[in-house]
Design a protein around this nucleic acid. Sequence first.
DNA 1: GTTGAGCGTT
Length: 469
Amino acid sequence: MSIEFLQVAEEEGEEPIELPVEDDGTLLLSTLQAQFPGTCGLKYRNPESRAIRGVRLNEGRLNPPVPESGWGSQVYFCVFPKGAVSSIVENKRKSDDHLENSTAKTKRMETRLRCTDLIVLGLPWKTTEQSLREYFETFGEVLMAQVKKDLKSGQSKGFGFIRFGSYEAQMRVLAQRHLIDNRWCEVKVPNSKEGMIQQVPCKVFVGRCSEDLTADDLREYFSKFGEVTDVFIPKPFRAFSFVTFLDPEVAQSLCGEDHIIKGVSVRVSNAAPKSEQNRNPNYSSGPPSHHQRGSVPPDPRNPINRQENISYPQNRGYMPNPPIQHNNGWNSQNRGNLDMPNLQALGINPQGQNPSNQGQNINNPLGVGLNINALPMNPALVAAALNQWSLIGNLQNQNQEQGFGGSGGPNAQPGSSQGGNFLSWMSQGGGGGGDGQQVNNQFQGGNQPWSRQQGNTGQPGPDHKQNFL
DNA sequence: GTTGAGCGTT
């Protein structure tokens, strides 16, 4: 006997896949979902009425429209779960937002592949699911919004979950903090969903920068390739910078290229992950892996961030790049290694190639037998650069004592322009964020989740683990 | 009736 197949496409116009029908003539939902993860049903266009018809689903089995005549030769389309919100939100969106022009298919793909529930921490007690949803709808279609409450009292527990329909929306939301019902909240990938997020870095290293290249210059230039969510230029001048894109693919596409900005030839390469050694030893619980992309400072171009006097808690990590914790080996395997910003900044790659470092160990530039005199550069300059990154001197001690993970980027060391340590670097403003945002520590005590962590003169306590999330 | 780091009753 022959097995019957029916043709299923993700949506109308897409190339169908043939799926095997069971002996009883039904299609198992599991069979469908094996090919179209996230699908919850099937539909088809009625050739007579031209209307879309749904396919009966009963106990995990999809039934042919007319049982006696089987599925026929028509193409069926997947049904994906969708929230109640749609058209209103769509219409509200900025028309100039090119990222929202993604096709339905792209959206599906993203939903299927990468969207995940996000946890919203620090919600005001008064925030309801309604207000939570309304807030996040400004970023995109919200498929789910919930506030966790005490079952008995109904009182909010101060956190909740949201899910977006598009990955862009999710990325935007993860890339900033959120003022919800007049309280700053943070959105993260829940611990339970770790590993479900794409871990392609959005940040690129831009070497050979000249001192007169401003963050605005870089932003303006690189924006033509895709939305730039952050630009970080270390202070004092270190001849490199970091540019973070919303889209990791844009970032990756630029790596290995030379670009001329304001007459300066800069080199774009992968932003090497920070090493564990320069991280906060207390911060080891394997937080969400999305922070490569997620922890960029709020984008000032986002209306939400245009409020007057917006500021960020000094110790909370709204510096160029809060520490990145990966569970994909980016950092976890790099313990004991040093980063290599110094060499990259000088246009030197000790590995002799573009440091494509995703998931790879980054060799310690010192560990590969760095010989300053052998470098194709003024040794004094190299030495000065090394010194800037604290690669000469008491680096070990600093790293052990500072107990901080924050830095100027995946491979920027906090360094010490004054011969100090990271804390002194922090107290100078910590880099202040790539957009020149002020870090004026305006938060008042008690009202913010992070307020108690203000004051950065002492050793970070154990609970500084939260500082940079 | 209070609170403020966390990780989702179903």
